[in-house]
Design a protein around this nucleic acid. Sequence first.
DNA 1: AGAGCGTATGTCAGAAATGACATACAATCA
DNA 2: TGATTGTATGTCATTTCTGACATACGCTCT
Lengths: 102, 102
Amino acid sequence: MDSRKKARLTKAGWTTGSTADFLNLSDEESAYIEMKLALSRKLRERRMANKLTQAELADALASSQSRVAKMEAGDPTVSIDLLIKSLLVLGVSKKELARTIS
Amino acid sequence: MDSRKKARLTKAGWTTGSTADFLNLSDEESAYIEMKLALSRKLRERRMANKLTQAELADALASSQSRVAKMEAGDPTVSIDLLIKSLLVLGVSKKELARTIS
DNA sequence: AGAGCGTATGTCAGAAATGACATACAATCA
DNA sequence: TGATTGTATGTCATTTCTGACATACGCTCT
């Protein structure tokens, strides 16, 4: 598995075609990573729409600027839990979350 | 916040009306808990549809029977990450996950 | 009654995620 | 140029989650 390393490689732009194929990710692993990245993008989108800096959002979340940066970067050390909690604080509804991940 | 205690109380059936109201949960907290419980129910539903025992599912997940039981019980120590990963292993699609949480 | 099966619950050592900090990078000013 | 602002990235101590184990509960048999 070693999905951490895989994610790092993926992030580093080490593929031209399908990352899933190249890294031999299972369907479940692919789906999981796709969901996480979709949530990451949504977070950045929402933060910017609200005209917040990462530091300001971090305050609202009782977190830190560096963690917000990692959330938006899809860092492997960030859980879906944290992404969801953050999006909820930003006022995203369950319905919109659902739309985001599907 | 102390959402652990709140979740335990909720589980213990300590309300007749709205649990959110009674426990002074914020909208975000309510939404988060609702999503978790929806995923819990879906997990049990899928496991049973596949005619698996908790122990058998635990094997498929490289987890343990007790953790599966906790997942299905909506235990506060279970993350949404774990629920999602488990559902994906059970063959649930992103689309169905989305439908579940919304 | 006792045996077997599936599930629930408490505990805990080890693993993973988190906030915080330092620091580097990039862009935009004056 | 240097200063400021926002973001990225690495590290680390603490917190939280996880699998494993023990054990209890409920049910269905014989």
